[in-house]
Every structure is written in structure tokens, then in C-alpha cells.
């Protein structure tokens, strides 16, 4: 698991730091950060990743559009995607799973929960 390359997408610099620190804490080291869907797709042009973690509500291109784009792309149609949402956004979770996300995580989460969620979708 620890040698996997992970792309995480969030418009908040604080969230990116929290996610990066959490991923490092649970043993990942090959990390790519993106600020929104457009940025993520750009980064994916140059690099292949094994797991994508994305926020849902973002400017430019939100998580929903990003997941749809990824699933349309043969290169990423099977890449595990974990969607990050907040409490009280159940509709988002339903939408995410419907368009092809593999799992979701509700903010705030501990590194341990992140680890379990990742394990869950990698099975």
C-alpha cells in the first residue's frame, strides 16, 4: 500500500496540508496535490496514480465533474476514488457513489479513519 502514488484534490491549502500529513502518517510517501478538478486532470496528464482522493465542493471543476471525467477516461476508469464530503451532505455521497466513486469520507477524519477507508476501497 505504501508504495502507491496518491493524487489528492482540495481547494483549501489547509485541507491539502492535513491530507498530506495524514497520508504520510499512515505510510504513503508518493503524493501529488491538486487544487481542483482542472488542476487534477492536468497533473494526471504527466503522471499515473494508483489512488485519487478528492474534495466534493470546489471552484473551477468540482468533485462531481472530476469523477465523471475520470470515469470517462479509459486510463482512469478503474482507479480507486475516495470522495471527501462534510457532515450533512448526504445527497453528495449518494451522487458520488452513483457516478462511480468507490468510497467517501466525512470531514473531519483522523488518519486512522483515512487508513481504514483506503483499505476498504482497495480490496
Amino acid at each position: 500500500m505504501s508504495d502507491m502514488k496518491v493524487l489528492f484534490v482540495d481547494d483549501s491549502p489547509t485541507m491539502r496540508r492535513i491530507i498530506a500529513n495524514s497520508l504520510i502518517k499512515i505510510g504513503f510517501s508518493d503524493l501529488v496535490a491538486a487544487e481542483n478538478g482542472v488542476d487534477a486532470l492536468n497533473k494526471l496528464k504527466d503522471t499515473d496514480v494508483d489512488l485519487i482522493i478528492t474534495d466534493w465542493n470546489m471552484p473551477e471543476m468540482n468533485g462531481e465533474k472530476l469523477v465523471i471525467k475520470l470515469r470517462e477516461n479509459p486510463r482512469y476508469k478503474d482507479t480507486p476514488i475516495l470522495v471527501v464530503t462534510t457532515r450533512g451532505m448526504q445527497e453528495d455521497v449518494v451522487a458520488a457513489v452513483r457516478i462511480g466513486a468507490d468510497g467517501y469520507m466525512v470531514k473531519p477524519f483522523s488518519p486512522e479513519v483515512l487508513k481504514q477507508k483506503i483499505k476498504g476501497i482497495l480490496k
Binding site: 481547494d11 483549501s12 489547509t14 485541507m15 492535513i18 465542493n57 470531514k107 473531519p108
Partner: peptide
């Protein structure tokens, strides 16, 4: 939407 997102981000990061 932008106003919503600002509050939303504050909520998200404050939670952590």
C-alpha cells in the same frame, strides 16, 4: 456559490 463555498471551507477545516 462562492459565499457558500467560503463558509463551507471554514467549516471543513475548523472541524479538523
Amino acid at each position: 456559490n462562492r459565499i457558500f463555498r467560503s463558509f463551507h471551507t471554514i467549516k471543513g477545516i475548523s472541524g479538523f
